[in-house]
Design a protein around this nucleic acid. Structure first.
Length: 463
RNA sequence: GCGGGAGUAGCUCAGUUGGUAGAGCAUCAGCCUUCCAAGCUGAGGGUCGCGGGUUCGAGUCUCGUCUCCCGCUCCA
């Protein structure tokens, strides 16, 4: 069941995704576009299933969590308040000797002599252009043969309106969270919510990553599933722990990822981001190494304080007990949808080698499988296709089911194994007598005989 | 963005000193086949990543560009 060389799994999954219509490169007939991927018929089924399960997990299981779909383009001031304008703009330089790349402000300075090199720092968004003169060197190889400073802004810019003036510059959101923060009080009002309450959102975000890569793991256009939970200050630690537990349960029970490939990491004080009071990562062991799947953060009142200050409108909630206003704390559960899809793909991939034959199997949980069952007439004659076709039409009203009468029965099973279809339903000659079919299980290869009119219920129980 | 490697059919590849594109698998049609792929017959599919240049002629030489893989940063 296990694949000896897991490092090859990425390549195999990428190839499978292309071959069988899960995910392929954007604009491929024009040579492709770096870091952009299109989700094909099976990929979109898988992705939307993962996001639907997340949505149900949030908004159905918790009465106090409501949904939102905010615009991708937001007022530019939002990103000043959030800290993205200043923190997402990195001055970087390259070492010409060892080819390393570093942030300018993290380079060590040799104080022994008089300043030799004058640095021209590109102006930031606020128009500041600090000039500096000193002796910086490469922390790796010690060389002082360094490139000029270049400004990397991780936010995509675009223009609002037909005229490209700087006044109309807007950013594509680099995270979905801010859409929730700026609407939080409106939503609390119109839904009559008091802390603790949550707002869930699934949507695209854009980051001009310096180095995208690893298939859909890090892309410049990506999809997030975020739930921001608003609580009273003082309750935040308790809710932080609560959501840690909820999210750990989700990745194991709902996504069904193998426990041995999951680990949980609570950040120490030194590694916290500027907005976070506490952070907890859920990491998955991808073929390329341990990487973050999602994070739970205690963002304190940082975000709403910032928006209060920048907008001039206090983002606070009235507390009946104390008759005073307070800015709620935010516990954030932020997951990468496209990362979850990748984790499910590589976690499911398996090869079964017998006598030189190689069977590729995607062990999707039936709940996640893009196609739930294959319906096959054993022979393409003697009325078997008609029976199979009728069953197919019945089942396909409720689930995505695939009808196949081409090739030997074994070949049809393999085709379904490769795309992770959990059940193969075969109509044989006995079906004409007993009105039943054989259902073959993808993982166990067990076969059971189920009456034709019982099949919908039988499937229902297992999906 | 920088350094290294690569780009011929959906996939894996072949293509001889530059002479005008092939194989296997896959796909489709038909036949065969009574439960775990690759038996038979036939068919479709490539302006050789894209764009210039050299040449009578370029998959083959040259330049540019795009994309992918491996490192250097960042994070969902």
């Amino acid at each position: 069941m296990a694949i000896a060389d897991r490092s090859k799994v990425m390549d195999k999954v990428v190839a499978l995704c292309k071959r069988r219509g899960f995910i392929f490169q954007s604009s491929e007939i024009y040579g492709g576009l770096n870091s952009c991927w299109d989700y094909g018929p099976l990929g979109v089924e898988l992705k939307s299933t993962v996001s639907r399960l997340w949505w149900e997990e949030m908004t159905r299981k918790h009465d106090e969590i409501v949904g939102l779909d905010a615009a991708i383009l937001m007022h530019p001031r939002v990103w000043e308040a959030s800290g993205h304008v200043s923190n997402f703009t990195d001055p970087l330089i390259d070492c010409k000797t060892c080819k390393g790349r570093f942030r300018f402000d993290q380079l060590p300075v040799d104080e022994s002599g008089a300043p030799v090199r004058k640095w021209r720092l590109p102006s930031g968004d606020k128009g500041e252009s600090p000039a500096r003169a000193d002796n910086r060197y490469c922390p790796t190889c010690g060389s002082s043969d360094l490139s000029d400073v270049r400004q990397f802004n991780l936010m995509f810019k675009t223009f609002m309106g037909p005229v490209e003036e700087s006044a109309s510059v807007v950013y594509m959101r680099p995270e979905t969270a801010q859409g929730i923060y700026v609407n939080a009080l409106t939503i609390a009002d119109c839904m009559r919510l008091k802390p603790p309450f949550g707002i869930a959102q699934i949507g695209k975000a854009f980051r001009n990553e310096i180095t995208p890569g690893n298939f859909i793991f890090r892309t410049r256009e990506f999809e997030q599933m975020e739930m921001q939970y608003f609580v009273k200050p003082g309750d935040d630690d308790r809710w932080f722990d609560f959501w840690k537990g909820e999210r750990m349960r989700y990745v194991t029970e709902v996504l069904g990822l193998r426990p041995e490939r999951l680990r949980f990491h609570e950040h120490g004080k030194g590694e916290l981001a500027h907005y976070a009071k506490a952070a907890f990562d859920i990491e998955y062991e991808f073929p390329f190494g341990w990487s973050e799947l999602e994070g739970i953060h205690n963002r304190s009142d940082f975000d709403l304080k910032q928006h209060s200050e920048f907008s001039g409108k206090l983002q606070a909630i009235f507390d009946e007990e104390s008759k005073s206003k307070y800015i709620p704390y935010i516990i954030e559960a932020s997951a990468g949808l496209t990362r979850a899809v990748l984790a499910v793909l590589v976690d499911s991939y398996d090869e079964d080698e017998q006598e030189g034959e190689n069977r590729v199997i995607m062990h999707f949980h039936p709940r996640l499988a893009p196609i739930k069952a294959g319906v096959f007439p054993l022979m393409r004659k003697d009325g078997l296709p008609e029976i199979a076709d009728e069953l197919y039409r019945t089942l396909n009203k409720k689930w995505r089911v695939f009808y196949d009468q081409g090739g030997s029965i074994g070949k049809r099973y393999r085709r379904m194994d490769e795309i992770g279809t959990p059940f193969g339903i075969t109509i044989d000659y006995e079906s004409k007598e007993d009105h039943a079919a054989t259902i073959r299980h993808r993982d166990t290869l067990e076969q059971v005989r189920v009456s034709l009119d019982q099949i919908p219920q039988w499937l229902e129980k297992r999906l």
